[in-house]
Amino acid sequence: MTSNVFVHPTANVSPQAHIGTGTKVWINVQIREEAHIGAGCILSKDVYVDHSVKIGDRCKIQNSVSVYHGVEIGNDVFVGPNVVFTNDRVPRAFNADWKITSTRIAHGASLGANCTIVCGVTVGEYAMVAAGSVVTRDVPPYTLVMGNPARAVAKVDKAGNRLPAGEPQ
């Protein structure tokens, strides 16, 4: 672990985890071995980071999010409370052929509260996923998606503002 990292006394951080300078790890967070968390991140109450997960710099992961093995989060990503990531397309309690399906959240993306990101998708740069949405396929960069299943409804700029139809980012 790097210097200048705040770890709340109730957090459980593996000595084999890599945590960047200035990151804050709050109440009841668990970070597993070989997880890589960038600099300047905030991991809020009850966050779980599975082994070998990669989280970029300046990410904010809010309460009660589990980031499972196979998920990679880029820099400057916002993950709202209770976001759900999956990592298995055919979940079974016991499966000898179990395989992780990777998921990628690109630089600057924003995931709204209670959305579900089904494994195997990429959420593009600066894309926004509306609260409660279920993402079942790739989200293009600078796109706002919403619904179940999530569908594109608008283009957005880097700040998340909707753009008029046809306007470049």
Rank of each mutant, 00 (worst) to 15 (best):
F6S: 01
F6V: 02
V7W: 00
V7D: 01
H8V: 06
P9C: 09
T10N: 12
T10L: 10
A11C: 09
A11N: 04
A11R: 05
N12R: 15
V13G: 08
S14R: 03
Q16C: 01
A17I: 01
A17P: 00
G20L: 04
G22Q: 04
T23H: 08
T23Y: 05
T23P: 00
K24W: 09
K24T: 10
V25A: 02
W26D: 02
I27T: 14
N28A: 10
Q30R: 13
I31T: 03
I31R: 01
E33W: 05
E33V: 01
A35E: 07
H36F: 06
H36M: 05
H36W: 09
I37R: 01
I37P: 01
G38S: 03
A39P: 00
A39T: 07
C41T: 04
I42T: 12
S44Y: 10
S44H: 15
S44N: 15
D46Q: 13
D46W: 11
D46H: 15
Y48H: 14
D50V: 03
D50K: 08
D50I: 07
D50Y: 02
H51D: 06
H51F: 08
S52C: 09
K54P: 00
I55A: 05
G56A: 05
R58Y: 11
R58S: 06
C59H: 04
C59I: 06
C59Y: 03
C59N: 06
I61S: 02
Q62K: 05
N63V: 06
N63Q: 13
S64R: 09
S64G: 03
S64N: 15
V67S: 09
H69C: 10
H69W: 08
V71G: 04
E72Q: 14
D76P: 06
V77C: 11
G80M: 09
G80C: 09
G80Y: 10
P81T: 12
N82Y: 11
N82K: 09
N82W: 08
F85R: 05
N87L: 07
D88C: 12
R89C: 04
V90M: 13
R92Q: 15
A96H: 14
S102C: 01
R104T: 14
I105Q: 04
I105G: 00
A106C: 14
A106M: 13
H107I: 00
G108T: 04
A109R: 06
L111S: 05
G112N: 11
G112K: 10
G112F: 07
A113R: 11
I117F: 03
